[in-house]
Write a protein that binds this DNA or RNA. Sequence first.
DNA 1: GATGAATGAGCTTTCATTCAT
DNA 2: TATGAATGAAAGCTCATTCAT
Lengths: 212, 212, 212, 212
Amino acid sequence: MASGSQARARARRERILDAALAVFTTRGYHDAAMDEIAAEAATSKGGLYFHFPNKQAIFLALIDRLGTQLLERAEAAITAETDPGRQLDAALTVVLHTFANHRSLTRLFLVDALGTGPEIRQALLRMHDRVIALIARSLDAAIAAGTLPAMDSWLIATAWFGALHEVVLRWALTGEPARLEDAYPTIRACLRRSVGLPVGPDETNDERQRNA
Amino acid sequence: MASGSQARARARRERILDAALAVFTTRGYHDAAMDEIAAEAATSKGGLYFHFPNKQAIFLALIDRLGTQLLERAEAAITAETDPGRQLDAALTVVLHTFANHRSLTRLFLVDALGTGPEIRQALLRMHDRVIALIARSLDAAIAAGTLPAMDSWLIATAWFGALHEVVLRWALTGEPARLEDAYPTIRACLRRSVGLPVGPDETNDERQRNA
Amino acid sequence: MASGSQARARARRERILDAALAVFTTRGYHDAAMDEIAAEAATSKGGLYFHFPNKQAIFLALIDRLGTQLLERAEAAITAETDPGRQLDAALTVVLHTFANHRSLTRLFLVDALGTGPEIRQALLRMHDRVIALIARSLDAAIAAGTLPAMDSWLIATAWFGALHEVVLRWALTGEPARLEDAYPTIRACLRRSVGLPVGPDETNDERQRNA
Amino acid sequence: MASGSQARARARRERILDAALAVFTTRGYHDAAMDEIAAEAATSKGGLYFHFPNKQAIFLALIDRLGTQLLERAEAAITAETDPGRQLDAALTVVLHTFANHRSLTRLFLVDALGTGPEIRQALLRMHDRVIALIARSLDAAIAAGTLPAMDSWLIATAWFGALHEVVLRWALTGEPARLEDAYPTIRACLRRSVGLPVGPDETNDERQRNA
DNA sequence: GATGAATGAGCTTTCATTCAT
DNA sequence: TATGAATGAAAGCTCATTCAT
């Protein structure tokens, strides 16, 4: 019986997170009312506060849940490749595709959440860091393999992340280009050239990622 | 008389904007209270509402004023150069230096304001656009001069802007690198290589920009 | 005009205090809702918070206003007498009469307010102190005049105050005795005997105090 | 079986009362949360509501339990004396000592609980009444023995109780005097004189009461 | 008997905006 | 023009109480 109610509690927690994601996504963090989240989750305000200590905690839990999902997917895609050059392509592809498939989510995480407060900002920056670290690791692997010369891989990874971030951001906010994937070849070439990698053909299997 | 009071009104308007900048900068958009802006401007809440219809309008006016200042300075720096290669350096330098000299302002414009609401977001994106256009124009000039091959200069400029943006953002939020200018050589090389430009020496006169 | 609005503001402040007194008196501190105080004061909740920073501040202002009124009246009654023995009678009489004429107020100050929180409790104890000091001063005057022997006048005054307090409290809460004044002769004799004063006749003019 | 579970139920009830006393004592009635009482009693909120209908009932049960304990002890101390004069001393001593040994309990019963609501207030007043009746009975015995003249013994007992109450209250809230017992000789003399009793030496065996 | 998830009315407080003076 | 008192909708959060398991 304990496990039964625990299971229900966990399910309710997930339902709250789902509802919160929906409300945060449409209203932004600040204008999302606990009342509305409660209604969307088909529970009461008290129910929210039973599962989470406050509004911010819900948002942080969301960041954690979604960030971890993204990272796991990206790391899986990267470790599936052995060639350092292809690893970089895989990392870029998975990040771009993930965002491309979740536009309002992208808007929430890339735009709305930054101006919210120090704790949330830090949590988001930690997520940025993890993505940057992922890119930097791929760069380091290529350097170790001799494919790339030595460089400040963290700074370069930061710049790469920023370049991707801005392209994705504009797409999320303005809808241009209509398909985010259309920007991929240009961006890929630009980034690869920026570190002296040959541009060559992109052999990533796009289809594999389409529904990521 | 009329012109005298008009001048006084304009002066009061400027004083309000100065006060608003100070308060927005320290508190962020949302936590900036009209009361505090009024106090800082040595006027009353009613006075604020005489000169501006609402809080958002003050912020938009600020964006406009500061954005125009930045852009004018940047365009002056660019048109002072005739060589397309140097123009690109000048563009990068002036953007980086402007942010570097106004850290809290950077935080306000790059971070806090985005999640505030659609109107402000659009105004900020228009500013981004103007900076991106500046970069794209420099790229186009280089293409026209034959220094660069044809390319999607707008998308590349977007990526460049994003790369700079992220580096500046991390500096603004975490203080790394201690001097934003330290990141410049690496970023410059990275960006130039990304379009196939020779890296070469940076001949921009740093001193000219220091107080920008 | 400034003085006009200032006067109105002061009047509104007083109206709020009157309303708060009424609501606190009927509901007790904790169950008094700001909504109800606002309604009773014919203003808005925001209006309350314009004049007072929070609920507690309203209560403290009430304590201050009423306590000062009581003290001033008591001191006037005492200084009107020159004979130390009569001063003591005057002090007792004015305290007893004041409470007797404001039963619900008495309940508010002697009962409801104590369990409210440290700040309010301290404010109330400071008021107790002032009354005790008043009694102790009268005792000291009698000691100086040779009417009383030396004694720990502060502790005795505390005990006197406590005796009066309890009698008043029971009257306030249970309505016994029907007229608080009926307890006066017995209490007076008891207190006077407790310090060795002759009981004698009470020559205080009751009528003078009746409407205090 | 039935009696076994009844015993367990009674034990659980006592554990809840112990826990409630601890929490009420540290937090005051209003700020004591059922959650915390449940945790302290090592049970659940539902468990609380199985044994008591609501929060108030717990408090009332506490008042009853503690009041009965106090009264039984006091009556034992009094009936142990046969001399009416000593009985009065014994009554005063046991009341003062009981409070002196339970400072936070005193605060709870004398201060926090009064402003809580009519039912609890009445229960507390009934306790006051029982203490006052105890004193009044001792006075009556002295009157019957011819040691004291006829008087309104209930009113006098009320005043005595109030005097003690205030002295104890100040000690409970301000810590003066450091040892409550230090106030005893003065208070005793004051009270005895107030009814015309000779002050004489206090022959109560203090040690017997120390751990009351 | 015991549990703890769920409820929901209720609270204090904030603040952009209005408008009589 | 300028003031600042007044507004009122809305927010986040608490907690005694209930009840399905």
